[in-house]
Design a protein around this nucleic acid. Structure first.
Length: 149
DNA sequence: AACGTACACTTAT
DNA sequence: ATAAGTGTACGTT
């Protein structure tokens, strides 16, 4: 299946997605958009709906490398909740720092919700801007609020 | 191939 | 507040 690309708006940023069927090859944040569309779940998610992005696959999930295992563990963190680098590390039998590195190199953010992985103390980092991470987390908190205020 | 350094961390002084 | 421990990747010898 051919790889197609597209982008959609997410707050002040544009998210570019390269994908093929329901497998996402690359996701990236940029300040400008490109032509083309993105997978439905991504579109809904960016619109602020609690879309389930785990229906999408990611090339980063394949294989039995350590990073693939870490990505699989991260993918299990559900919408609106968070986990610490240390927790993911414990679950995959490695060190927190390694999880941080894997997150930094995550080829498909959102699909693999690396923004839900925070530090034991602080929020942790995010490429290209930690502001995106904060925005995503606050958006998810609102999205899962059971009783509207 | 060894070595040093840089990290999206954590835990212990 | 600072330091030491940790695993992997990457640039330099």
């Amino acid at each position: 299946m051919a790889i197609v690309s597209g982008s959609c708006r997410l707050g002040l940023w544009h998210v570019h997605v390269w994908w093929s069927g329901n497998v996402v090859h690359r996701v990236r944040f940029a300040t400008t958009g490109i032509s083309g569309t993105v997978p439905g779940p991504v579109l809904r998610y960016c619109a602020g709906m609690p879309a389930d992005l785990s229906v999408l696959g990611s090339i980063a999930l394949d294989g039995d490398s350590l990073s693939a295992e870490i990505y699989r563990a991260v993918r299990d963190v559900s919408y609106g909740s968070t986990a610490t680098y240390g927790a993911i590390a414990a679950r995959t039998g490695t060190a927190p720092r390694v999880v941080g590195r894997a997150m930094a190199h995550n080829p498909t953010p959102l699909v693999i919700p690396c923004h839900r992985i925070v530090g034991a103390r602080g929020i942790g980092g995010f490429t290209p801007s930690v502001e995106i991470k904060e925005a995503l987390l606050s958006m998810e908190r609102k999205g899962t609020r059971k009783v509207p205020r």
